[in-house]
């Protein structure tokens, strides 16, 4: 049995409206890497994570809880939880949806890896720290436009107050929200938004930088395109160009590029069984093409890895571009 749709959507919308995020992610932890790197606050160009990679371990934890609740007599009482959540910050959610440090560390390392790659490529940028707000992607997908419209205004105001003109994103969902959705809600919207993959592909990896085969890789990777990057934002060539420059042989699965097959992740928050079925089908397509899969979205990463059950390796593209795995771990 699925959870009550309105209560789940309502709970996520309440959190975005009241707290600027769908789930309570500890901000100091999530921005620790930027302080360590000494990134300045704001500026003409900023790296904007939208907390997407950092939030995914919490969403995954919540998904596991939902899978248990959905089949239990507690499911209908989610309405009471929503009322309590409005009154008390992070009511219960921080406790029940708290991932273990090992589950968090890989996802928290991605923003740091991306920042290092941009520094190596000669890009000068700042960071917004506590103002690096979640994009509202999940709430927008659920149809809560009024809440997202207000949030878009809030994000635009933050960008303006930090003198930002160029935004570099690290995941497809934040990219499409800031590049294609927010301009519908905020006018004028005069921010140039690009994925770090597009920025790096334009500049090229530094000469002699061929880290792909140093990452414990066989040297051949199967590319799983994100639906949002490929079909919403047209980002198809950049990841292939970068992987090739990193010294990897790129293999294409049965469905690739603009015809990519979904990882199932978008159904995870309401219908986890359906999400798992789609992910399993995609894993079969990927496994037919190779033994190592590269993703470029945190939702794809977590869903495909879960469905693969170790049958193929699934890693984020930033890890391949950074090279040695030992260097990618963030402080726990």
């Amino acid at each position: 049995m699925a959870l009550p749709t309105r209560e789940v959507v309502g709970l996520l919308s309440d959190n975005l409206r009241m707290r600027g995020s769908v789930l309570p992610v500890p901000v100091r932890r999530a921005t620790h890497w930027a302080r360590e790197m000494g990134l300045p606050k704001g500026g003409d160009t900023v790296l904007y994570t939208g907390m997407m990679y950092q939030i995914v371990p919490y969403l995954e934890r919540l998904g596991r809880l939902q899978a248990r609740l959905g089949g239990s007599p507690l499911g209908p009482y989610l309405g009471l939880a929503r009322v309590a959540n409005r009154a008390v910050r992070g009511f219960g959610m921080r406790a029940v949806a708290r991932p273990r440090p090992a589950e968090r560390s890989e996802f928290e390392a991605v923003p740091a890896n991306v920042a290092r790659l941009l520094v190596q490529a000669g890009v000068v940028f700042g960071y917004l720290y506590e103002d690096d707000l979640y994009s509202g992607a999940l709430t927008y997908d659920m149809g809560s436009d009024a809440v997202v419209a207000a949030h878009a205004q809030r994000v635009a105001a933050v960008l303006r107050s930090n003198h930002v003109r160029h935004v570099i994103t690290i995941d497809p969902h934040t990219t499409t929200m800031l590049r294609s959705v927010f301009p519908r809600f905020v006018q004028p919207y005069d921010f140039d938004v690009r994925s770090y993959l597009e920025v790096l592909a334009e500049r090229g990896l530094p000469a002699g930088h061929r880290p792909g085969t140093e990452a414990g890789s066989s040297g051949e990777v199967v590319v799983h395109d994100s639906c949002v990057y490929a079909r919403y934002e047209g980002v198809v060539e950049a990841p292939r160009q970068l992987l090739t420059q990193a010294g990897l042989a790129v293999r294409e699965p049965e469905r690739a590029g603009r015809q990519t097959w979904c990882c199932g992740g978008p159904a995870e928050s309401l219908y986890p069984a359906k999400a798992a079925a789609v992910a399993s089908e995609r894993v079969e397509q990927l496994r037919a093409a190779g033994t190592e899969c590269v993703t470029m979205c945190p939702i794809c990463l977590v869903n495909l890895r879960k469905a693969a059950k170790g049958s193929i390796a699934v890693r984020d593209i930033s890890e391949y571009l950074m090279g040695a795995r030992a260097e990618t771990k963030a402080p726990v």
Binding site: T5, D141, M142, C227, R231, P266, L270
Partner: peptide, 16 residues
């Protein structure tokens, strides 16, 4: 068909 509406992946494979 509320379940169908909310289970759609919004993957745009159809639209493409």
């Amino acid at each position: 068909e509320e379940e169908a509406v909310f289970s759609c992946l919004l993957c745009r494979s159809c639209e493409e």
